[in-house]
Design a protein around this nucleic acid. Structure first.
Lengths: 124, 124
DNA sequence: GTAACCGGTATCCTTTTGGTAATTGATAAC
DNA sequence: GTTATCAATTACCAAAAGGATACCGGTTAC
């Protein structure tokens, strides 16, 4: 099931590392998950996921450098900028899908644990 | 294809965030990718992926807290400790699989870009 | 003029992450 | 006694990641 336990998967963990290098961090996959549905404008993204403009700008630049998203300036009033997933970005769909599926299934578990660990959790 | 563009996926990106909260960082998925094949001992993991004992210990503890891996002390001489994926950990197989598949496919692209960005790359 | 919207930067700061090296305690080999 | 292995842990430190806030230049509405 899990590919191969020996030689053919020369180093599966290396492949995972390679992928992580591109989508590392707290935001890239979250942004991509949105852009896989439809294009978003800068402020729209910022509001939707609650990320500061500085970070968002940086993340989008990195996604652009890796050719995962495209940036298009729209000559509207006022000017808006539209970000969209590229074909290359869409090739990450299975990763995003797998992660959101898992997140849905284990939401309770994760949130539950968060509460247990959370020092701000009150024992009324 | 990508679930749903409107209401039913209340917030796919939230699910992605939930998942990221558990498997974030440079190492957790790499470790898990190995443990999905077979159990590993501490030093074995350390050597295989080239990670310092301090970090490895911390990562394994976090994975254990999230019930993704199990820890078993073996009464050998000297004592060894065996880490293995739990059932819950195996539920991340599709995520690991998706990421390693993507990594394989785009290895050249990633490594290529790394070289371009790398300041230590010499222009002889 | 003033205010608001847009995309984005600049500045400052805190937190997290990751790494090295040394050490510990138990056990065994020499 | 010395050295080695194993599984960590500790102390220290550097770098990266992330966040808050203010600000900029351009445009439109009032």
């Amino acid at each position: 099931m899990h590919s191969c336990p020996g030689s053919a998967s020369k180093s599966q963990h290396q492949a995972v590392r390679d992928t992580l290098e591109v989508i590392s961090g707290k935001w890239k996959l979250v942004i991509l998950a949105l852009l896989l549905n439809r294009p978003y404008r800068f402020k729209e993204l910022s509001r939707e996921i609650g990320i500061s403009p500085r970070i968002l700008s940086k993340e989008l630049q990195e996604l652009e450098q890796h050719q995962l998203v495209t940036r298009r300036v729209c000559e509207t009033r006022p000017i808006t900028v539209e970000y969209a997933s590229s074909d290359h970005g869409r090739s990450l769909l299975s990763v995003v899908q797998a992660m959101s599926d898992w997140g849905y299934l284990h939401h309770e578990t994760i949130v539950g644990k968060k509460r247990l660990d959370d020092p701000s959790a009150q024992i009324a």
